[in-house]
């Protein structure tokens, strides 16, 4: 998928992806010549269709989590999965919500792993099962991570 600024006859640059949490999704593009910015707004059906494919508009910056689709979309039994990745003491590893994964994807790749680990440790210590943007905000404030 490419976006073309017709006025400038120039390919627009992908800026960012947003998921407002209402089942829709948006992607912003900008023209580097004239500065015009546009947003592509997808309805819930279109959003779901893309997510069902397991692909990311704008490109994938994070490696997929194991069974990302099944764990994210299936109405599963309580405790169907036990996430032990990286935790040797038996504590459950928290899951990053779709919105928090979007935010994490915007972190520069060379520090993304460290940032993810910090958020994970913050959530594990507080028994938080799912890392949402709200949890990330609290973590940044409490841990002094502003800017991450």
């Amino acid at each position: 998928m490419k976006f073309l600024c017709i006025e400038c006859d120039a390919q627009m640059r992908f800026e960012e992806r947003q998921q407002p949490g209402d089942g829709t999704f948006a992607a912003a593009f900008a023209c580097d010549r004239c500065g015009r910015r546009i947003a592509m707004l997808a309805n819930p059906m279109e959003t779901q269709l893309v997510e069902s494919l397991g692909v990311k508009i704008g490109g994938r910056t994070l490696e997929p989590e194991p069974m990302e689709i099944v764990r994210g979309a299936l109405v599963a039994r309580e405790g169907a999965f036990v996430d032990e990745s990286g935790l040797s003491d038996g504590r459950v590893r928290p899951r990053f919500s779709d919105e928090s994964q979007e935010r994490l994807a915007r972190v520069p790749s060379f520090v993304r792993g460290m940032v993810k680990r910090l958020y994970t440790e913050y959530a594990v210590e507080r028994g938080i099962a799912e890392i949402t943007p709200d949890v990330m905000d609290r973590a940044r404030s409490e841990l002094g991570l502003e800017g991450m």
Partner: peptide, 21 residues
Amino acid sequence: LLLEDGAPLAWREPASERFVW
């Protein structure tokens, strides 16, 4: 192994236009 006993396969996504995706 993942579904509740007796529960049908169901997805959390919006029910509208389910046939598409």
